[in-house]
Design a protein around this nucleic acid. Sequence first.
RNA 1: GCGCUCGUAGCUCAGCUGGAUAGAGCAACUGACUACGAAUCAGUAGGUCGGGAGUUCGAAUCUCUCCGAGCGCGCCA
Length: 582
Amino acid sequence: MKNFVAEPLWQALQELHQQGILPQLPAHLELDRPKQQAFGHLASNVALLLSKSSGKRPRELAEAIAGALPSSPWIEKCELAGPGFLNFFLRPAAFQAAVATVHAEGERYGSMDMGRGERIHLEFVSANPTGPLHVGHGRGAAYGASLANILRFCGYEVFCEYYVNDAGRQMDILAASVFLRYLEVAGQALPWPFPKSAYQGEYVRDIAARFHETAGDVLLHAGEALPALDGMEDGDRMVDVLIAHLKLRLGAETYSRLHAAGLEEILADIRDDLAGFGVHYDNWYPERSLMQGGAVESAIARLVEGGYTYSSGGALWFRSTEFGDDKDRVLRRENGAYTYFASDVAYHWEKFQRGFGKMVDMWGADHHGYIPRVRASLQALGQEDSALEVLLVQFAILYRGEEKISMSTRAGEFVTLRQLREEVGNDAARFFYVLRRADQHLDFDLELATRHSEENPVFYVQYAHARVHSLWRQAGERGLSVPDGAGLPALRTLEDPREFVLADLLWRFPEQVESAAREREPHQIAFYLKELAASFHTYYNATRILVEDEDVRLDRLALCRAVARTLANGLALLGVTAPEQM
RNA sequence: GCGCUCGUAGCUCAGCUGGAUAGAGCAACUGACUACGAAUCAGUAGGUCGGGAGUUCGAAUCUCUCCGAGCGCGCCA
């Protein structure tokens, strides 16, 4: 729609440029939608921007531009206003064209080819598989999946990946936790209370019980001489002692069986949970494969060859300070083990090797201090700084009424994503999650969400969609003719200002999608949908749609149907259903 | 202490690469169903955009500085 004005405006500017009145043309044209009706449908500030380089006063320049505008079937008039704004008023035909465009493009309305098939690697959630996903992870899932949909809609080829941290110490702690519960299941009492630094959740007990069913008592011997933990502080060292004991007593093979039992079961649960939430991945990337495939060694070898490393205190360090990081970072510890950072360097390098020139990572906001070092490593490995984009997602803060609920995975007192989905439903959860900018804290009040779920904005939007379909049902019952898509009405009768407001909003959808994609902000779609639904409800309450006059009726139905189509397209981007009845 | 993010109506939040009188939803108050779904709508009230200074035709938006909040600063992941 902006092209209706942008093209003639651009012609006028070029005309003045050739005449020598404008020494310089703007890099791009910006058209605003003024808040006040008196300022027209679209406004340009180009005269204000060009006044300096042309040495002319803004109003004088605006006048010249207005005079050079070619005539257009879409533009009613162009007025000068304020310090030098150009205010454009559109003809009804411009709005009527919106309805026809929506119907012509259907499910593809709002899509575009901005990305031109560019490949984007999108990594999100990637929670450690040490327990079920909680509501904080749900936010990342909803945000990432919606962003993937939006980017695909804009012509990008998006590859979604979940990075599985299956190699770290946290997994060892899980294995130890499962083992202790296993002893209890087998009827063997622990010589000390279950450690607080181990995973306490009920799910650990369940995994242990199933593991006992398949493995039997063959691991029991390792529980016979458990290390004395008396007097030891319940913390990292205590679990390390336990892990060391287990590895020694069980042997590598049996230990890895125990390790795998926990990992596989939890991972299966996470996959199932996300799939049920409408979140799909193209690949699940195990951290262990980096180790086993030698990717870590080769990435680090590259850093060493490039002269970006040094040894100190028996450890291998990366000079990340050369690329703006606060301090240098350890890649390989004194004990020879690689750090988590080392595998992350390898992981990002490996993504690049797979042909992804563009990587978008979504991390919890508490990881923001981690960005400079990863960015540094990519630069040291010769990649463009812009190759990696990190989006931070604040964790959701969960409330039950006034009471804040803590979400420590180890303590096991968290609300799972699965529980949330069951309580409020997928639609409400998906919509609610993207109703805020990702980098803002999200207060999620369970009591409100469960008790007053009908107050959730998602119902407001879905209701607007259902109302349109209700019109069709009504028309059918009364034997009235309805537009059938093939024979779209000419839309001559649409001329109510409220109809133009709606049509103008329909025009805005593609612009909003583009903006959401560019800024990586799905919440823009959610806000847009609320606005479109509100305008529709207003129109619906003020205007009778199913009137006797057939021309008017068909036009209004076509407009309503275009609204429903646009609502459905937008909801689909957010992974929310568009019901025809509620 | 250093770094990142943030501070907009009673509450929760929008505000598009600075644009013309700062918006929405809840909550409060007043109205609209013998009418296509009242899960809705119309209206009233509510803000020195944390304080101050600067940049310019023009600042919630950019810069600086204070105040306040959250997070991060490990040979953890």
